[in-house]
Amino acid sequence: MSIIKVEKLSKTFKVKLKEKGLKGSLKSIFKPRYKTINAVKNISFEVEKGEIIAFIGPNGAGKSTTIKMLTGILYPNSGNIKVLDIDPKTERKKLAYQIGTVFGQKEQLWTHLTPYDNFKFFGAIYDIPESRVEKKIEEFKELFELEEFINTPVRNLSLGQRIRCEIVASLIHEPKVLFLDEPTIGLDPVVKENIRTLIKIMNKEYKTTIFLTSHDIGDIEKLCKRVIIINNGKIVLDDSMENLKYHYLNKKIVEAKMKEKVNLDDEDGITILKDKGYNLKIEVDITKKSVSDAIKLLNPDNIIDINISNTPLEDIISNIYKEEKK
């Protein structure tokens, strides 16, 4: 069953153009010029129940715009959205009871109150009876290890603890889908790992579907089974993590330090990335040529040092971004 169904979704913004200088400012007051920007262009996709999906793309690609349309914050210009069979455009409130949202850069908590009071406030927002909220907080306290700071005002918490509370606060009403917009932004590696564990627990324990945007490759690699890449408002890739990796794992990077210069030309299955005489970096497509064949080309007796590696996911993704640009 699809939890999220998006069909031919588009969103345009009218942006005011501003010219430089005093003259430009004056001109823009009396005769403003506008430019239409197509932030999201005719995209369609579906998300299944219980999935953790990564929705990624470079800055300004349309990620946030899409997530905001899915959660009812922005009105689409055209297209259809169904989240849990609810249309965010017309039934915003009804949808709000069913989904949770965390925007990494925007705080929803009252900073002068303790997490405990904040959770109770959110409980009230979602019309949950007092006794159930308390039970829920008890449960979360244990599951997400909030014990030591649940009674400390939020403003005295570390950034990591805050984000953890932000996420927990968005879970009080047991949402079926959770939207996370860059949840790990600005966190140190240990805290990041912490948040990832939290997300994993949520997904496993409560079968929550998770829709995640992030610039952090670690988030994506460690959490998600499926990736949607959006660039310039269009979906450029929608595939399983495995496929994405597999597609590129067929390629190995061979770096070698040689005793003597080798003259190597591009041939089927081999791409030369760097050739500085004694230092060589080549990419081998193992569907066409085995690694050992490639090494043979180099003359194994001449090799001082060799390193064979996979293409890092980070490179894979930034390559996809760049390809789109061309």
Binding site: F13, V15, K16, L17, K18, E19, K20, K35, A39, S64, T65, K68, I73, L74, Y75
Partner: peptide, 12 residues
């Protein structure tokens, strides 16, 4: 017509 924080002023 709400445009969230996406409404930026572009400079030319």
């Amino acid at each position: 017509r709400y445009s969230s924080s996406n409404l930026m002023v572009a400079r030319i």
